[in-house]
Amino acid sequence: MSVTKIDDVGFANAIRQQGVTLVEFGAKWCPPCKVLLPILDELQQEEGERVSILQVDCDESPDIASQFGVMSMPTVIVFHNGEPADKFIGLRPKDVYQQAIAKYA
């Protein structure tokens, strides 16, 4: 399993209504986003079914980025049971995301 790329259209259906979803808002040209993606892929491998990790390209899906107030990239929003629960702006160490998953899982 790896990070799943989604867009404005598929966003609502991709967010888990039960459990934890991490959504990374970034862009192809964003250097910190490029560093973050392998970390998130690794997390998805480690956490398996416990969490769903999604990626939104802000250039391709500006509406959903705007809806959640994404002003800088990368931004990771943690959804718990379909609702935003936490937001991390900028590149963070892997353990920050692990702790967020553990907090809501």
Rank of each mutant, 00 (worst) to 15 (best):
I77S: 01
E60W: 04
S52Q: 10
K28G: 05
V76F: 02
T21W: 07
V96E: 11
M71L: 13
T21F: 08
A65W: 00
S2N: 15
E47W: 13
Y104T: 05
Y97V: 12
A27W: 08
P93A: 10
E24H: 08
L91E: 12
A14D: 11
G10P: 13
Q17V: 11
D7M: 07
P74K: 01
T21H: 10
R50G: 14
G90N: 01
V78Q: 03
Q17E: 15
E47P: 07
R50F: 01
Q45C: 05
Y97Q: 08
D57K: 01
V56Q: 01
F68Y: 15
R50D: 14
K28A: 13
G69E: 11
P93R: 09
L22F: 04
G26L: 06
I77G: 01
Q45Y: 03
C33I: 08
L36D: 02
L40Y: 00
R92A: 14
D41L: 07
G90W: 01
S72C: 08
V56Y: 00
R92I: 09
V78D: 00
K34I: 11
F25R: 03
I89E: 14
M71R: 12
S72H: 04
T4C: 02
I77C: 06
Y97C: 09
D8M: 09
Q67R: 14
F11N: 04
C33S: 09
F68L: 13
D8R: 06
G19F: 08
K94T: 15
K87G: 03
E47H: 11
T4G: 03
D63R: 10
F68D: 10
Q67D: 14
T21A: 13
